[in-house]
């Protein structure tokens, strides 16, 4: 697979693991999204209060992010995935190369997840669209997983989605 899992660091959030893979290899098989999300979810969930359910919930969210990168990414460069923890929150930092001009699309899509009408936009999307757009997937994370999303464009043309998932708590995995 050409992938590696290494330790990394970040302030405030405790680093759990880092995964990277050549984008060309990642894009060669759709099932990489499922396999990577399931495997990494199990790895980071073992010391949560309910490891089995935490893993299921985390995998569900992570898979959607990986599918976004699969559908929007390009073959040049690497996909990088770092996972951090602070208390009840898991932070996913997902970097992947994307076509020129796409950064603006993600900037706007991420911005919409933080607006007060995020839920209305999400309901409108699932009511009327035949298939989910990348924008509605990000809204899904905000609405159904209480995720907080932001975008880092420092490594253009790659973009980095930073997603905080407060999965361990009442209403989530409790």
């Amino acid at each position: 697979m050409g992938a590696s899992v290494n330790k990394t660091t970040e302030t405030a959030f405790e680093p759990l693991l880092q995964f990277d893979m050549e984008m060309e290899d990642f894009l060669s098989d759709w099932h990489h999204c499922d396999h990577v999300s399931s495997y990494l979810a199990r790895m980071i969930s073992h010391n949560r209060t309910d490891p089995v359910r935490h893993s299921n919930f985390f995998s569900s969210a992570l898979n959607e992010l990986l599918e976004v990168s699969f559908r929007g990414g390009t073959t040049d460069g690497k996909i990088g995935l770092s996972i951090y923890r602070q208390g009840a929150t898991e932070r996913v930092q997902l970097s992947f190369p994307c076509p020129p001009g796409q950064a603006r699309f993600y900037r706007e899509a991420v911005s919409k997840t933080r607006e007060s009408d995020a839920q209305a936009r999400y309901l409108d999307a699932i009511s009327n669209d035949l298939a989910p757009s990348r924008e509605s997937v990000l809204l899904d994370l905000a609405v159904n997983y209480d995720a907080r999303l932001r975008l880092d464009e420092d490594a253009a043309p790659a973009i980095t989605l930073i997603v905080d998932l407060p999965l361990e708590g009442e209403g989530m995995v409790s």
Binding site: E67, L130, S136
Partner: peptide, 12 residues
């Protein structure tokens, strides 16, 4: 156990 948005939206 798992369902992605593609399947969710197709069924609903």
């Amino acid at each position: 156990i798992q369902m992605n948005n593609t399947a969710f939206q197709a069924f609903i």
